[in-house]
């Protein structure tokens, strides 16, 4: 398959970040959709979103043409990785499969260098973005309902997903921060995330 598809993997923690993780993927997809991209956003099928703290994956695929690989379960080669909880860097090889020149977005109060100390394969990264998303927006209400193939009828992007995706749009050219603001519930949070993100080029 030679199709150019931009892959995003979002790592969140079970139960208390399940919904926000999904919202981050939906925000990116909806914003890219507004920008005329073909999009796909979905939850990992094998993860266990109903167990507290378990690392979860949410995915996005963005492309300029219709995406052929719709059914492939996981993003094997993510160009962008988002970490909703900084401690996940110790638990998972989050950059697995990343092609050289990728980006990493981390929700943390720490500095990029403190996070990089826990990333052995940082040569894959073109840049790392740290943003205190939890400080900007409190975690939104926990939703136990939406995990299993459910949908969001409530507003998307009210919690930490908004500043995180805002920060991501600083290094990702597949979606524009203006479009993220349009589709997110917490518009202020998106802008604050964008403005306060610390970007370190590698």
């Amino acid at each position: 398959m030679s199709q150019e598809v931009y892959e995003v993997t979002i790592w969140a923690r079970g139960v208390f970040q399940d919904m926000e993780g999904r919202h981050a993927s939906l925000l990116m997809a909806n914003a890219a959709d507004l920008g005329g991209k073909f999009v796909q956003a979905w939850d990992d099928y094998a993860d266990l979103p109903d167990r507290v703290g378990v690392p979860l994956r949410k995915y996005v695929r963005l492309s300029d043409e219709e995406i052929e690989m719709r059914f492939v379960y996981v993003n094997n080669n993510p160009n962008l990785v988002v970490i909703m909880d900084d401690t996940i860097v110790k638990g998972m090889n989050i950059l697995r499969g990343m092609p050289k020149g990728g980006s990493l977005i981390v929700n943390t109060r720490r500095t990029p260098d403190e996070i990089l100390a826990f990333i052995p394969n940082k040569e894959l990264l073109a840049n790392i973005v740290c943003v205190d998303a939890s400080g900007i927006a409190a975690d939104a209400a926990i939703d136990f309902m939406g995990s299993e193939g459910g949908v969001e009828v409530a507003s998307v992007g009210a919690g930490i997903s908004a500043p995180l995706v805002g920060a991501a749009s600083k290094v990702c050219d597949m979606f524009d921060v203006k479009n993220v603001v349009k589709v997110a519930a917490n518009k202020d949070g998106v802008q604050k995330g964008f403005d306060s993100a610390q970007v370190k080029a590698l």
Partner: peptide, 9 residues
């Protein structure tokens, strides 16, 4: 117009 999974559909 919505963005729904098969379950929700």
């Amino acid at each position: 117009e919505v963005f729904y999974s098969g379950c929700a559909a």
